[in-house]
Design a protein around this nucleic acid. Structure first.
Lengths: 189, 189
DNA sequence: AGTATTTTTTGACTTGCGTCAAATTTCCGG
DNA sequence: CCGGAAATTTGACGCAAGTCAAAAAATACT
């Protein structure tokens, strides 16, 4: 777990009980079948989706090719950021890769929580800060690393992804062809 | 100007005078010579740098190669996000490409403003939201577009960059070699 | 203006990775 | 435990874009 996530969790754990119980009320638990979609293109993203158990991914389609942008495990938050922020229809899929248990944090309820409690606003802001920094790092990875280096980095930083998911998805996450990923794998190991 | 920036400006213009004057106090104007650095690797980013006049860029060095990540014009905000957020030393340069006039928004003063006025916190949050969405779009551009397409997109979205800056910098912004950019230019026009 | 220096263009060659196609392995239902 | 589908690997080949090098053009310097 990285330093910044730790800060968010610290802040969260120091919220007083009144806020915590109020927050819980904006939460709904939900289950998804393996292979089902939590979000599809054309839909407006009206919630944060906190993964309780299982694996999910976010992807978009470009010229008939799926490009996976994020892979979610326990405690990750799935969201289509621009759709959520602007409350406009998005163009991404969020897919359950296994059977999934999710806590749904509703947009409007969360919004009123933020207005009422500055601490919650702070928490949300930290979440987005973290997300922005993560994007910046991803961008840098694509600018500086070749296919093999990106794969090695993935092995180091997110070993579960490389181990648990089929080549097709891992390749689309690294933005390389599955053949290339297969070749890299045989060289590396 | 995009829709989201418009929202931020709207919110800003609706702040009441008390807050506005308090905000102004956290601002300091500063000038930079062409070629000088507003931030260097190893330094902690202790402010937002609002560009009043001139052009600046952010870049980092990877294997002796400069990679430009952002180019700033009037009303843009230059910041090293992770350094600012964590108040850790960063690894990026912010360079004045022309003579520059900047409004410096001090970290700690801005921080206390945010604690005091929820509206200011909101404004800051919107800034980061916008930044995160921008990063996400950049990432997608690198994942889906080839060198020529990225250049054409740049011409469309940020024509000043392509027109005003030397090939070296434009190429490092598009993350291609200057030779390739030169070839693209001769083909396109 | 004339030379030096930087910037941009052009050319020849190399290479990482994509595509298409076929072979092989893994997975699974009956 | 076997046959068929899906996933993965392997091979042959092409191309976008990088590198190195030199020419040409633009800019700066005295």
């Amino acid at each position: 777990m990285n330093l910044y996530i730790k800060r968010i969790k610290d802040l969260h754990s120091r919220l007083d009980t009144e806020i915590l119980t109020a927050l819980e009320e904006a939460f709904t638990d939900k289950r998804f079948e393996k292979g089902s979609y939590l979000l599809r293109p054309g839909q407006i993203c009206t919630s944060h989706l906190l993964i309780k158990e299982g694996i999910a991914r976010k992807f978009y389609i470009h010229q008939d090719r799926e490009i996976t942008t994020e892979i979610y495990f326990h405690d990750d938050v799935a969201i289509s950021l621009d759709s959520y922020i602007m409350q406009n229809p998005g163009d991404i899929y969020i897919e359950a890769l296994t059977e999934l248990e999710v806590t749904v944090i509703d947009y409007s309820r969360f919004y009123s929580m933020k207005s009422k409690y500055p601490e919650v606003m702070m928490l949300d802001k930290m979440f987005i800060e973290y997300y922005a920094v993560w994007f910046e790092q991803q961008l840098r990875a694509f600018q500086t690393l070749n296919a093999t280096q990106r794969y090695l980095k993935l092995l180091e930083k997110e070993p579960q992804v490389a181990q648990l998911l089929p080549v097709t998805i891992v390749a689309s996450y690294l933005n390389i062809s599955l053949e290339t990923l297969s070749r890299i794998r045989s060289k590396v190991s």
